[in-house]
Design a protein around this nucleic acid. Sequence first.
DNA 1: ATATTTAAGTGTATAATATACATTAAATGT
DNA 2: ACATTTAATGTATATTATACACTTAAATAT
Lengths: 234, 234
Amino acid sequence: MTNYYEVLDKNLVAVDCVIFGYDISDKELKLLLVKRKFEPEYGKWTLPGGFVKKDEGVLEAACRVLYQLTSLKDVYMEQSYAWGDVDRDSGGRVITISHFALIKTHELDPVMIEASVAHWRSISRLPKLIFDHRRIIDRAYKELIDRIKVKPVGFELLPEKFTLVQLQDLYEAIYQRKIDKRNFRKKIISMNLLEKMDEKEKETSKKGAYYYRFIPSRYEDFKRQGFYFNLDVQ
Amino acid sequence: MTNYYEVLDKNLVAVDCVIFGYDISDKELKLLLVKRKFEPEYGKWTLPGGFVKKDEGVLEAACRVLYQLTSLKDVYMEQSYAWGDVDRDSGGRVITISHFALIKTHELDPVMIEASVAHWRSISRLPKLIFDHRRIIDRAYKELIDRIKVKPVGFELLPEKFTLVQLQDLYEAIYQRKIDKRNFRKKIISMNLLEKMDEKEKETSKKGAYYYRFIPSRYEDFKRQGFYFNLDVQ
DNA sequence: ATATTTAAGTGTATAATATACATTAAATGT
DNA sequence: ACATTTAATGTATATTATACACTTAAATAT
């Protein structure tokens, strides 16, 4: 096939993944970072990333990078931004398309993470990163804050069953501010997207707190009825 | 320089521009579309686009495409999305990064647009477009609706001086619904971002409507004071 | 068995914001 | 001076957001 495209400049295209996880016990939002395994910037902290292959979609590449690192599939993954400045990578011209992923940290094989080059780092205490990766993270984090206000994506970071205290802690960790307990509960309960379970979580208190589950089908109904998720509460 | 990147797959990277304009007299939101000048899909309707050169930033490429078509510089341009499916372009593997631009249609040289391959088409009566360009537009249009609710970008589509009727007409054209006149005016006036001029627009009515101007420095103050632009009004 | 401790769970009053809605004002042409 | 046309304006009500403090349940210690 003769192809008009063949005379044109081609570029390296990469994906970088801003992988968010939430540590339910220390109540901190974390990022999964790695040390770079090739030059330039060998051994430096970087976002997990990789190059987009000829026969591979961009989203597919991002999911592959995540899978290779975590063995996780069916993860919440959203495109963030295409970073296209000519000089953003000191090794050559690379256009990278950043994504953010939300993973349930307890689903990660602890042996694997121990053995791997990946490390969880608190969002509030990040190491120095290569290139523009800090800006990439900042943007993804802002997008996460915006998203979690208006879409029920927080549950992607929590176990299947969680208490309302844990859910609020997660929101407080992401918003980086306190939320009024009664207003928060009023709002999430009123949307009727959660199912209260009979079981209680008893590790953190004598009284115990009821577990809840997010019910995706209820959210589908909710949307169908023209309602909008909102947990932008003070 | 030895380079670890040299063995990797490279890809064609394009930019496509969703160029919004507003026709103040027929009160319609329009897109600037062109007919494709090369194979495949020669002669078919397409978004204005181009390939990203080796030594050119992605945003820079989008601005170049816009400039070549309109001779306009310093235009509102925002990245929309990177479209990366392997088979999205029937001519070969092309990753395209779509952008949306907001231009003041009256600033376009009418002779140039007449002579060029570009045509304004109403957003509500688009022709059949190549590849995934319709999806690209749909996404950009949704983003525009979201953006214009919370950022004063509507003024990018209007002349320097405009009436409140014209501003509301623009919002109604974008939202594709009627807005209550008093509530709309109450909200935009209360933000104190507009300056009322002494002059009146007298073409469309005997009484005439006062012209207003958007004052960017007031918006800077407004933000500095922690306020948020909002014209999400019924 | 009773008291103490700890975190979970709950309601209401007030403030702020959004909405619905109809008349008057200004200018021109007849 | 009257008719016509579009611009401009205010208020009452409904909805939503916010601020705020005590009670409950269960385990543990006395």
